[in-house]
Amino acid sequence: MASIPAVPTADTSHEVRLAEIPGTVPSLTKLPVGCAFAPRCSLAIDPAASNIRRCRLGRGSSAACWRAAEMVTRP
């Protein structure tokens, strides 16, 4: 979710700041337990720090996110 507004398109202008995702990509040798994106995620909830949950969203699509189902129903 967070990475979509971070991608520039031809319709975005340099006057508008891209949505930055704070922090850096973790080192592959020191991956955190649980969801690797949780430390950088503004929507992270507690269980994400210890576990990864794969959430089925529909036919053929799934997301490794605790809150994926909520995000889909959001407008």
């Binding site: 990475s3 971070a6 991608v7 340099h14 891209l18 930055e20 850096t24 990509v25």
Partner: peptide, 14 residues
């Protein structure tokens, strides 16, 4: 760069 870092660098340049 990773997409999440790319935005940081673009914003910094601007």
């Amino acid at each position: 760069l990773d997409v999440s870092i790319q935005a940081q660098v673009i914003n910094l340049l601007i």
